[in-house]
């Protein structure tokens, strides 16, 4: 049976850490699915089918987590025993939140005024800040800095905000 106690990195044969080779991840994921996917067991015993289903779902979960940079950062923290993404700790600096709320309002106004350029510029701004957060998180994780979880939460917030604003922009078209 697939050892569910193994980490996602271990399962895919990758060295644990935030900085990963995206191509190696994809390759390892595909190779694993080629082995365990239920399509290989369509005529096998029920036990084998059930295992294939579990193993394949587990491979999907590992890939989904490691492919998404924010989820990967959270996962690396979790492996170190730090719960960055939990529902119990959602703290963010007040000034950060205030700034994002203002942005959201500005986006709504731009949308109402059909000012697509302003909306686009706002989205670019948020994306740039998210990219900065990503680079900083990579450095903080290398240094095992205690400020990492907070920065990861900010990063996640920015990515979500950018996606929301994209959706807002699309709805207008």
């Amino acid at each position: 049976m697939i050892d569910f106690s193994r980490s996602h990195f271990d399962l895919l044969g990758l060295r644990p850490g935030f900085r990963i080779d995206a191509e190696a991840l994809e390759r390892a994921y595909r190779d694993l699915q080629r082995r365990v996917h239920p399509d290989n067991f369509a005529r096998a015993s029920d036990a084998q089918k059930r295992l294939a289903l579990q193993a394949s779902a587990r491979a999907n979960e590992a890939y989904r987590t490691l492919r998404d940079p924010v989820a990967r950062a959270e996962y690396v923290l979790a492996l170190r025993g730090v719960d960055a993404a939990s529902e119990t700790d959602t703290r963010l600096p007040v000034e950060f939140l205030t700034r994002q709320l203002e942005r959201r309002e500005a986006a709504e106004e731009a949308k109402d005024a059909h000012d697509d350029r302003a909306l686009g510029a706002l989205i670019d701004d948020v994306r740039r800040e998210a990219a900065e957060a990503r680079d900083e998180v990579a450095r903080l994780l290398d240094a095992s800095d205690p400020a990492t979880p907070m920065r990861v939460r900010e990063w996640r917030f920015l990515v979500k905000l950018a996606d929301d604003l994209d959706a807002l922009r699309d709805a207008q078209i």
Binding site: M1, R27, D31, L32, R35, V36, Q48
Partner: peptide
Amino acid sequence: AAKRMDRSVAQALAGKRV
């Protein structure tokens, strides 16, 4: 079945690729 599945995973990790 579990042992065979385990071995499949191990083989995938061994870098045996097509």
